[in-house]
Design a binder for these strands. Structure first.
Lengths: 304, 304
DNA sequence: AACATGAACTTTATCCATAAAAAACAACTT
DNA sequence: AAGTTGTTTTTTATGGATAAAGTTCATGTT
């Protein structure tokens, strides 16, 4: 059966809106709510029904208004708001990056399905989606081959990333002064400076900034293939560093400085300077990844 | 039910082997056949059973030998040797490229499933696979958006292609003299010269050559992301030109000459010359595609 | 006419079932 | 021991069913 995660997530969102006063007194129309919550009216109605049922919203002669205060345990737990597909993704990534899955291992849909407690269909769909990341390969009628999260992979990934980023950075710098992206860049520079001051406690915020920065650079002259490639990077890094926190503060601090230099270079519009700053930053990111891959390897060897 | 296309294709292959004398007298072992036909022994046995049943192979005391001559209608028809997934692919590509599917159209899994006569699962898997081509986009819980086989698409595609190919061509030219790829390149040059002589009748053969050439260039310093990207190109061109044959001979003739110039440039190992030849060739390929896109557009407008 | 709610209908996300194909096991033969 | 064939087990490719979510239609209000 299809999960009702959409409803539950919407419900939680509605509860939050009630709690922090985004909804007071009489409720807006179903259509208005639908727009605000980005779900269909059918789902809005289901949420409303439950809100009324729990007295979080009162209904009198068809008029709905806020009811009793929202409690912490009115919320559905997080697991229940996560799609099956997302679950598969998370479990697979953990299996791949955390477990001792070695390059050359073959992946068995049925086995994963049993392990993750989903139908084989879900596994297969995930694997098809995931195959674009270059880490697995389909062999028809037979299964999938795990090629390994290896040094080679990192090198190939960064080779492309370097090409794309150099291209985008140069194009970015060639924009007219009138482009609104310049002020976005300035804002981002400020955000970097801010974070730098609070880095001791907030170094986790870096990854969001990193993402915004690299996406901004691509915005100047968009290319869907470059965007897609950046999705791969984001995805891989998200999961990899989620389970590999060594030196995180250190790493992020260094990257912050590199970004600032890189932004300065962009603002200077000096092609050579941009190239240096860009190369420096990416080379450093690559080294960081490579180092952590070797770390991973050793962990696995020890764990065996 | 799963189709038995693997078996039927294997059967046809076995029939061909019998027909053109690759199998005479006593048959090799099941394992040997399995290896030659790239299927499991289970399938080989099924094929053998049917061959015996049809007297194409005789069996006496467990010894099998070739039997009566193979007839044209011993073969299973082509449709029956094509996987459902492949069918979906073909029908979808036709629907997209041939029909008057306009950018912005939304794609409905259920409708396609009915139209192509397959389960929705198959459609969905195809769409997930196809989404990497940058022509469609998934909107969760809602469906897919067809972004259009447009000029933008072609431009973005060729921008990346240019970057990749320039990179690969330079790296190719920097290989040591001892690399076996040089002789492969020489062979390919010969094949081009050959084709050039017979171009009047055999111009269709160009696309195979084109593929071999561009893949060879990538072989010098492989990168999985570049390979994957080349898959996109191959796929798109395959279907696009399958239904768009205008000027085919003309086009291929021009491309043949460009290839030869490009190969000469590679052999000269002169970076500047390589860059020029590569750019020239790709620019021309891009123009061809763009022209045919405009043609497509007009056809659609007229057809409406 | 523009918006609300209710109800009916359609499509997506998900699970389950099963024949075909692959892989593993077993028992022989050279 | 290495290679055969026969048998059993496992896995993949595909179809089918259904609750949840989205969309459309109908009817009623301001």
């Amino acid at each position: 059966m299809r999960t009702d995660t959409v409803y539950k997530k919407a419900f939680n969102r509605a509860a939050s809106m009630l709690r922090d006063g985004q909804l007071v007194g009489e409720l807006p129309s179903e259509n208005e709510l639908r727009r605000r919550m980005c779900v269909s009216r059918t789902t809005v109605r289901k949420v409303l029904r439950e809100l009324v049922h729990r007295d979080l919203v009162t209904e009198r002669d068809g008029f709905k208004a806020t009811g009793r205060a929202v409690d912490d345990n009115d919320y559905y737990p997080d697991v229940e708001t996560t799609t099956r597909a997302k679950h598969v993704e998370q479990q697979f990534m953990e299996w791949m990056l955390r477990g001792d899955t070695r390059p050359g291992t073959s992946i068995n849909e049925l086995e994963l399905a049993r392990q993750f407690n989903v139908a084989t269909n879900g596994i297969r769909e995930f694997l098809i989606r995931f195959s674009r990341f270059g880490l697995i390969e389909k062999r028809p009628n037979t299964g999938w081959l795990f090629k390994g999260f290896t040094e080679d992979f990192a090198l190939e990934l960064f080779e492309i990333r370097m090409m794309f980023e150099l291209r985008s950075a140069q194009l970015f710098s060639q924009q007219p002064d009138s482009s609104p992206l310049w002020s976005k860049l300035a804002a981002l520079k400020m955000a970097h400076a801010d974070l730098l001051e609070r880095v001791e406690s907030r170094f986790h915020d870096f990854s969001g900034l990193d993402n915004r920065f690299h996406r901004l650079i691509n915005e100047a002259s968009p290319n869907r293939f470059i965007d897609d490639f950046y999705d791969i990077i984001t995805f891989i890094f998200h999961y990899h560093y989620q389970w590999n926190k060594q030196d995180e503060k250190q790493r992020n601090l260094a990257a912050l400085h590199e970004h600032i230099a890189y932004i300065d270079a962009l603002e200077s519009r000096n092609a050579a300077r941009i190239e240096v700053a860009c190369r420096t930053h990416l080379a450093s990111a690559r080294e960081t990844l490579m180092r952590s891959l070797i770390g991973l390897d050793e962990t696995n060897i020890v764990a065996q």
